[in-house]
Design a protein around this nucleic acid. Structure first.
Length: 418
RNA sequence: GGGGGAAUGUCCCGAGUGGCAAAGGGGGCGGACUGUAAAUCCGCUGGCUUAGCCUUCGUAGGUUCGAGUCCUACUUCCCCCA
């Protein structure tokens, strides 16, 4: 990484100030380009899941900031590359996704980020493109002749991603070589179709972007650019987003706005300012003020972080509702209808606590529920459960007509007999 | 094509003289302490109708009272030779 250059263009300056800058190619030229014209830039995502997660969020924020600065972001969906199956995961043979599934994932992903970017036909509206549009139609031999001949295997072998794999004696298939080539080709194709001059990504994708830039020189005699973001880790060194139950999804149906808000609320102290800069639109001077708060006061900043970050993904109303639910639950110790709610038939009552724990979703098996009880971690209506054989009758319902089932201090679910 | 190795608790890494629900980490979850933080300490971390039973060590067979461990075939990966 080079030290952040002093940029003059609004976009790049903001990008650096907000801590999203890691590296770029030809900084002066790129800066000049941003000052001169509306730039079209893209970031690619694959379609292996029906939602993006916060690991993708830095990239999405890059697109958002581009748009805010009046440029045109392209969201490239890897509908074509996903069909090959992503070979980068190590052991496990991936099941190939069907075209229908990929299409469904694509639509779902798009739905999940609709608050983040404005799509449309306007000059700085975002556009969504699927690389299946061109990759599906490629003919092997002519592709090799036109594109493949520009790739040096010698050079590909020296690329970080490849070298790492070989050194660690991890499998590396021919497919992956083609993956790199396809990705490089995407860039050139986006230049041809949309005049796209910039590709952004996490720093781990640097090599692939540079390959695309090379290909741009050779096929179209054009100068393309790369811009990368740092790998975001928490202050204590963990990768972002690998929390509790796996990935922190952006789609509301895979992780509720309330839980999403909670994720940010639980940010480590040392990350508050940095995360605010990257993951919210809060003005920098306000962030500077908030991150200076000490000790427990910093919790106020975390609430703002949570609400602002949730607003970007779920919209203002949902974010505020999540904040209110958290306030009622944690600060008043009460019951808020905003908590995740599960319905159970009245006929199942009286219900055993183990069954209740599993059905409410706070544990995934009876055994886990037993262990939770043994560790004094399961509570019903804020009363610790001490006996795994206990049953809960309808008489235990709160005034609101629900049961509050909790695992530990943070996970609360409402059970509603119907 | 020939030779040599590897695959372990479905989160990851990793030990495992034929008696193994299988060492140890990491991660995760709970508890204590706090501020819904970090650090630290403690407990848990295959399932069940839990003094017991059932299912797990790449896949399928076999030897054995008994197989993660031995044999055979197969699959995938790595290394060396061609």
């Amino acid at each position: 990484m080079s030290a952040a250059p002093r940029f003059r263009s609004e976009f790049l300056r903001t990008f650096v100030e907000r801590g999203a800058y890691y590296d770029c190619t030809l900084p002066e030229e790129l800066d000049a380009l941003f000052q001169k014209e509306r730039v079209t830039a893209y970031i690619g995502f694959d379609c292996t899941a029906s939602s993006l997660h916060i690991g993708n969020l830095v990239q999405l924020m890059t697109l958002r900031r581009l748009q805010q600065a009046g440029h045109r972001p392209i969201l490239l969906m890897g509908g074509g590359t996903t069909k090959l199956g992503d070979p980068s995961g190590k052991d496990e043979v991936r099941k190939l996704l069907s075209s229908e599934q990929i299409e469904a994932n694509k639509q779902s992903i798009l739905k999940g980020i609709r608050h983040l970017l404005k799509f449309g036909d306007g000059p700085s509206d975002a556009i969504m493109v699927d690389n299946a549009e061109w990759l599906d139609k490629l003919e092997y031999i002519s592709f090799l002749r036109d594109v493949g001949r520009h790739f040096s295997v010698n050079r590909m072998l020296t690329m970080e991603s490849v070298k790492l794999r070989l050194d660690r004696e991890q499998p590396l298939s021919f497919l992956e070589f083609n993956y790199m080539v396809c990705q490089a080709y995407d860039y050139v194709e986006l230049y041809r179709r949309y005049g796209c001059r910039l590709q952004s990504s996490g720093s781990d994708q640097w090599g692939n972007i540079v390959s695309g830039i090379d290909l741009g020189h050779r096929l179209e005699n054009v100068q393309l650019y790369a811009l990368s973001t740092p790998l975001i880790t928490t202050a204590s060194g963990a990768k972002m987003g690998k929390s509790a139950s796996g990935a922190v999804w952006l789609n509301a149906d895979m992780r509720s706005p309330y839980d999403y808000w909670q994720f940010w609320r639980n940010t480590e102290d040392g990350d508050v300012g940095r995360f605010m800069r990257i993951f919210t639109d809060l003005p920098l001077d306000e962030i500077a003020r908030l991150e200076k708060l000490k000790g427990a006061e910093l919790n106020e900043a975390k609430k703002i972080l949570a609400t602002e970050a949730a607003t970007i993904v779920h919209g203002r109303a949902a974010a505020q509702a999540a904040a209110e639910t958290a306030r009622r639950t944690f600060e008043e110790g009460g019951i808020s209808g905003g908590l995740p709610t599960i319905e159970i038939a009245k006929s199942e009552f009286p219900i055993g606590v183990l069954t209740l724990a599993v059905k409410s979703g706070v544990t995934s098996s009876n055994g886990e529920a037993r262990k939770l009880i043994a560790n004094n971690g399961l509570r019903v209506n804020d009363t610790p459960v001490t006996d795994a054989k206990a049953t809960i009758g309808l008489a235990a319902l709160t005034a609101e007509g629900v049961l509050k089932v909790s695992s530990g201090k943070k996970t609360h679910v409402l059970v509603k007999p119907v």
